[in-house]
Every structure is written in structure tokens, then in C-alpha cells.
Amino acid sequence: MAAEASTRELTMSRAMVSAIAHEMRENSEVFYMGEDVADYGGIFDSTEGLREEFGYDRVMDVPISETAYLGAAVGAAQVGMRPIAELMFVDFFGVAMDQIYNQMAKNTYMSGGNVSVPMVLTAAVGGTYNDAAQHSQTLYGTFAHIPGLKVVVPSTAYEAKGLMHNAIRDDDPVLYMFHKRLMGIGWMPAPEGPKTPVPETDYTIPFGRADVKREGDDVTIVTLGLHVHRALEAAASLAEEDVSAEVVDLRSLVPLDTDTIVESVEKTGNLVVVDEDYRSFGVTGEIVASVADEALGALQNVERVAIPDVPIPYSRPLENEVIPSTEDIVTAVKRTQ
């Protein structure tokens, strides 16, 4: 079996599902609920096959009331279950913001530590497929901002499985944000890269550990999710022009692995942060500020590449214009050289 495990590759969606199924087999308190997660298997294949194995009691389709079922998940977690609740599009968080921001994130603290909230909130994020301003956001900054939530963002199948195992086993609420374009769905082809070999056994990727996806000497590109792959493509193209770029995949926003970023910037002197969220009050500003706090003297040049502060357009050329492209990353890196 070892030989198969080393050569078998999984899409990100299948890696997610394999971690969830493993945890559901091991622990009867783990269950999944969300819109279209049972019979449909998740509109982005996040639960494909789970209902067939575990039945409707543990893989539940819910009515369209995010407030109701996210609140139910918080309550179930507080009495000792380990719910995984899916927000079909992260953009829909607004209708359940009190459950997420005030209950899920804060009940451990509001109860003086008498309860914990060991739940996972999964959410599909991201654009690039012309779904307009209410179905294309990542909102990384919106969730990383609030204390009490851990926030993780896988970039490959390997990360997707290890982060999911860790998320379900964590005793605190974890927001698990998966990018639709990385899932490996037939109608939304993934770029090269997210489909990786995945061990059949369980393993965890600890939160707060960024991963250096490519080593380099001239510039540090910090990014996450889909843009890990665009940054790697940019780095490959920059290498042909003798610019050596290091690519840091954050993997988790909360906790944030500032040490790995600072260590890289102290080596390269130049920082480019690439984010598929809005530019203002978000990931790019936070990363730059964190490095400035720790190692201001190491910073020679700083560039931020993010969505300008506009709602994401439906029109394909306009959406392509606002979402950071590989060329945008190359151009930003060149400005630092």
C-alpha cells in the first residue's frame, strides 16, 4: 500500500473529504451540516460521498437559514459535539454575523471558560469565474480580524487534508476557507499545483506554520490560497530573468507565522504581499505592519498586490483586471529590484 500512497494524487476537494470521513469514522461526535451538503455533496464537492457513508443523521442538509444552523452548530459544540458547518459562499456570512462574530468566536470567553466551541466553519471563497460581487469574495481580513477564531486557508490537497484533521481536533472554533478554483471541479478547472500526492493515513498540519513553497534570495512573496500558485508561476518566470523569488504560503492567518515571514525578509530585504481580498484594512497591510514591527530595518522595498477597493465585477475582463494576476505579481516584484 505504501507504493500507492506515494503515487496517488488527490484533488483538494477529495483530500478535504478524506480527512472529514476519517474523523467521522473515529469520533461519533463529528457531523456535517450545511446547504446542499448531503444529497448534492456540496456545490464545490466539499462533502462528496459523505452522506452515502454516514447517512442523513450525520450529514445534514439544512434550510436556508444560516443564523439557525450556525447557531445550532455553536450550541452542539458547546455541549461536546464536534460540528462542521458549511457556509456555502463566505459572502453569505452577513446573515449570520452575530452567530459567527459574537457567539462562535466569543462564547468561550463570555462563559468565563466554562464552555469551549470545538466547531469548524467551512466556507467556499474566491473569484475568477464571473460570479459577481456577492459570490466572489475571499473576506480573509474580515474573519482574521476578530479575536477568538482560528482561520486557515489550504493551497493544495496535502494542506487541505492536514489542516482539516487539525481543525476538527482543535478545541476552539476554526474557520476553514477553501478556494473554489483549487477544488478540482470539472466545470471550474484548477491550475497546476493544488492536486498533490496525499498520504492515505491521517496527519495534521499545525496552525501558525507558514510553508516556504519556493526558496529564493532577492524578494519574499507572501500569499495564500489560489495566489500561492500564481506566485509560484510568477517566481518561475522571474527566475528566467535572474530574479530569485521566495514564495511563502501562509496556510493559516490566525495564528499568523510572523517568524517565517520575518526570517525570509531578513534574507531578501524585499517584501511583496499578494492577496485576493480587498487592499484596505486587510491581509496585505497586516503582513507589512507585522514585518515592520519586528524587522523595520530589514525592509528595503514593500509592494502590496490586492483587489482594489471595489466590489468584484461580473464582467470577465473587468474581474480579470481587479484580481491579482501572475503578471501583476511579476510587475510588483520588478518594482522592488
Binding site: 500507492e4 503515487t7 496517488r8 494524487e9 484533488t11 478540482g184 470539472g186 466545470w187 478547472p189
Partner: peptide, 29 residues
């Protein structure tokens, strides 16, 4: 139909009934 994903590459050892690839026919995967 169209091949969507291969889960193994050429020269891989495979076991009978293991999933090798995913295909899509119209909207059915």
C-alpha cells in the same frame, strides 16, 4: 465525455477497483 482529473500517473501501480480518474459526461461526474 471529458477527463477532469487523473489521480495516478503513468507507470503507477494500481489496484483493482481503485479510482484512477474522474470524468464528466454532460453535467454528471
Amino acid at each position: 465525455g471529458v477527463v477532469v482529473n487523473w489521480f495516478v500517473g503513468e507507470d503507477a501501480d494500481v489496484e483493482e477497483s481503485e479510482s484512477l480518474c474522474e470524468v464528466q459526461i454532460e453535467k454528471v461526474s
